[in-house]
Design a protein around this nucleic acid. Structure first.
Lengths: 204, 204
DNA sequence: CCAAAAATGGACCGGCAAGTCCAGAATGAG
DNA sequence: CTCATTCTGGACTTGCCGGTCCATTTTTGG
């Protein structure tokens, strides 16, 4: 029952998902019990299973979707308008800041390791997130091309894929080492490649 | 008792770690019990606690170290001698092939999510792995510089950090989507940047 | 060959957390 | 108003799994 008939029901369901997301971010998936979530959200066991009949996995999946939606939302409005060098730098700072704030907890990563193979839908969530993310990066690069700031010969798709990988890895490394330098290196490197392409094709 | 007095003891301990690593890779940390490990390694409960008195966490940490060591070992001999373009391409292929073979299981990642904050040593393992990995990449780039294949102005440290991030992210994306294109894009992109630097400084 | 230490086998315990159940309170339709 | 539906509370069950314990066997050092 992913949808609740009444308004009250929908509100409760949303409260559960948001509260669960909080707890999971604080304690980590492995160490969070349904009772923790129950306590945080002021609900009872039966409510949890009323809104998520398939139990913990279903709830975790809902939280995963919730967190996935936040990822791109947190990068707005910058990610949506990457059409000038300034906007790229602003976005770069927003990304670093967002993940610095998030600290060493990786809600999505751990969520999927838990749910992983058991639930079919889990993989789709992350795939879709990556697709949208990369698409927006590519769109930004094409905007630079359209503005004449980047060479038309520049391989946007590959650069966007590489940048996305760099961000993911930078974040992952930051999670485990506490060091943001890899994330920053990946971002700066990518932007500088874009800029190099701008002057690069003038060397005819 | 990380070390065992007798040869037999050391052998048993090693058998446990290796067997545990297998099971963990197959089933994932979350779904693996000590009994699974016991079954696979042909040992008894008391042996597990004999060699890992602090229980499951200590065993998982040992497996994490074991897996971390494999990561760099699997990239040899290529990673050790990145002194020509050919060697870089061979290494690139070895990395892709290694992670394609590994498939969608991330032994290290899940291991640390489980052990994570509870054990102090866990973070050190991954930090050290990243340090060594990046160092070898940087060394390879400097070898290219020394051979005159790459401009001396090239920022090796940043490029190495960005490349490492790209690899990590590429692998992470591959884990969850099954698609290796991001990993390949990150690798190809990095190598091409190196090559671009070679010709780039000739455009004086 | 013989103590002492190390290694092994496996029964057993205890707690915890997911999931069940039903009774009762709110809500909404007509 | 009233009856069906939805929502809520919380006690209870159940199985699992990490961890303990001790008896027994094997190895080692002298």
């Amino acid at each position: 029952m992913p949808d609740a008939p009444t308004a009250k029901g929908r509100a409760t369901r949303a409260r559960i998902v948001e509260g669960a997301a909080e707890v999971l971010r604080e304690q980590g998936v492995v160490f969070t019990t349904l009772d923790d979530i129950r306590g945080r959200t002021g609900t009872s066991k039966s409510q949890l299973f009323h809104y998520f009949p398939d139990g913990k996995d279903e709830l975790l999946l809902a939280v995963a979707q919730f967190e996935a939606d936040r990822v791109l939302a947190d990068q707005q409005p910058h990610l949506g308008s990457l059409d000038s060098w300034e906007s790229w730098y602003r976005w770069r700072d927003a990304v670093v800041e967002r993940y610095e704030r998030q600290g060493d907890e990786c809600p999505l990563g751990s969520l999927f390791l838990q749910v992983g193979r058991s639930r079919p839908g889990s993989r789709a969530i992350v795939t879709e997130l990556m697709r949208q993310w990369q698409e927006q990066l590519a769109r930004g690069m094409r905007a630079l091309q359209a503005g004449g700031l980047v060479s038309p010969a520049f391989d946007v798709d590959r650069a966007a894929a590489a940048l996305l990988a760099g961000i993911q890895g930078g974040v992952a490394i930051m999670m485990s080492t506490g060091d943001t330098s890899h994330l920053e290196a990946a971002l700066d490197n990518a932007i500088e490649n874009l800029r190099a392409s701008a002057t690069g094709h003038t060397g005819k």
